[in-house]
Design a protein around this nucleic acid. Structure first.
Lengths: 221, 221
DNA sequence: CAATGGAATTGACCTAGATCAAACATGAGG
DNA sequence: CCTCATGTTTGATCTAGGTCAATTCCATTG
C-alpha cells in the first residue's frame, strides 16, 4: 500500500557504507530491519575464537527480518563486502505497519520464507556434501548467478569463502588446485570454468540443496 | 480472529499417526501446512545415499510453513517419531486467511521467524563447534527441555541423533563413552547427567548457538 | 620504487571422525 | 520363550581436512 510505504519511509534511513564496514554484531538487539539496495553484505558469526561466514546477501533483499519481527537479538553479525547502499527501518514501525498492511505482511513473510530456505540449504550442504562437492557446487552456482558466464570474480576473500564452505583457507587453496583436472582454473581472484561438464561430474546442482538462481530479470517480472 | 479460525478449521484435517510414519517427502509440492499437536516429528533430508536429520519438531508448532507461504516444494521430508496428532490445513486456504487476518499473519510470521532461527543455530553449531561440543551441548539442552532433570530418554534412535549432530552412529557411540569422565552416563536409551558442572566445562550453552528452551509453561503464559 | 603487512600458497605432519567388519544387545513377532 | 532383524558397540584402519610453519604473492603506503 502506498500509504504504508510513505509512513514507513519517513522513519527510514537510507545510507551509503564503504566496504568492510560492520553494520551490527550478533547478540545486539534488533532495532532496525536492513535492506541491501546496492552492493553486498556478509552475515557471519563467531564463537570461542572461531568465525564463519553464514551467507552473502545481495540486492534487493532484507536481512535479519527474523530478529526484527520477533523482537529478538541478532544471531549473526553483518558487514558490507563492497560499497553498499542500505535502507534501515525501525523494527517497531515495521511491525506495526505489517499489522496494518496485509500486502506488506505477505511480502515480508515471503522474504522470510526465502531466508529460511537459504539456511536450510546451507545446513543440508554442510551435512550431505563433502568439502570438495560443496566447493564445486558453489562455483557452478556462482557462475549461474553471474549470468552463466564461464568466468567470474570472487565476491569475498578466499579466507572468508573458506569459512562459508566450512573449511580452512588452506584446504580451500588445495581443493581449488585439486579441481583443476575437473574443469576449473583459478587466476588470483578470478575463477574460470574451463569444462563445465567435467565440473558437473563432481557435483550436479540440485534445487533441494542449492539456492535457485534468482536473476534480476526474474525479480522484476 | 475467531471467524478465521472457524473457516480455516473447516478445511483442516486433524489426524492421528502411528510412530515412524512418513508424512511427506522433500521435493513434493507443499499442499498442506502441518501442525504437531501431540507427539513429535522429525525433519530430515537425503542426498546421494546420505541421509541426515535436520530438526525435531515438538508440540505445538507448525512445520514447513516456509514452503507453504511461498508455494514451493518441501526441502525436507517429515516422519513421526512417536504416535502423533497432526493438523493439516490446505496451503491455499492458509495463504488467503493470512491475507485477511493480520493477527494470523503476525503469528505465522513469528512461527516462521523462530524456525529460521532454529536453522541458523543448527548451521552455526555445525560450523563453530566440534562433534564433541555439539553432543555435550545437545545433552545439556535436552536436559533443560525435559525440565532440568539430570536424566532423560533419547527422543530418537542413536543412529538418527548421530546424523542430526552431523556425525556417524559409530562416532556418537564413542563420543558418548568419551563423555563419561565429564559427567555423562548412558544406560541404553537413557542419558544421565552425573555432574553438570563438568559437562558445562566441555561446552557452555550459548543463546546465540543453542535454542532457547521454551517450556510448556512459557508457551501458555 | 622500495618497504611493509596481510592474504594466499605450499609443505610436513597430525588428528577428528569416517569406514569397514565383526561382535553384541534389544525388542517385536511368532 | 525363542528367533530374527535391526540397532548399537567395539576394534582396526584409513583419510579428509586441520594445524603449524615457512614462503610467496600482492596491494598499499611512504
Amino acid at each position: 500500500m502506498p500509504q504504508t510505504f510513505d509512513t514507513l519511509m519517513m522513519a527510514a534511513y537510507s545510507q551509503n557504507f564503504p566496504p568492510l564496514l560492520d553494520l551490527f554484531r550478533e547478540g545486539e538487539k534488533a532495532d532496525f530491519l536492513h535492506v541491501v539496495v546496492e552492493g553486498a553484505v556478509e552475515l557471519h558469526a563467531k564463537w570461542n575464537g572461531r568465525e564463519t561466514v553464514m551467507a552473502v546477501v545481495r540486492p534487493v533483499s532484507a536481512f535479519i527480518l527474523a530478529a526484527c519481527v520477533s523482537d529478538m537479538v541478532y544471531l549473526m553479525s553483518a558487514r558490507t563486502l563492497e560499497k553498499s547502499r542500505i535502507i534501515m527501518l525501525p523494527a517497531g514501525d515495521l511491525r506495526s505497519a505489517m499489522r496494518r498492511d496485509p500486502d506488506l505482511a505477505m511480502a515480508s513473510m515471503n522474504e522470510l520464507a526465502m531466508s529460511y530456505r537459504v539456511m536450510v540449504r546451507h545446513a543440508k550442504n554442510l551435512k550431505l556434501r563433502s568439502a570438495r562437492e560443496r566447493l564445486a557446487a558453489w562455483i557452478l552456482q556462482q557462475s549461474g548467478l553471474a549470468g552463466s558466464t564461464p568466468s567470474f570474480f570472487l565476491p569475498l576473500e578466499k579466507r572468508q569463502l573458506a569459512t562459508y564452505l566450512g573449511i580452512t583457507a588452506e584446504s580451500l587453496s588445495r581443493l581449488l588446485r585439486g579441481l583443476q583436472p575437473d574443469g576449473v582454473k583459478v587466476d588470483g581472484t578470478r575463477i574460470i570454468i574451463t569444462d563445465i561438464n567435467r565440473l558437473r561430474q563432481v557435483t550436479e546442482l540440485d534445487h533441494l540443496l542449492d539456492d535457485e538462481v534468482v536473476t534480476f530479470e526474474d525479480r522484476v517480472s
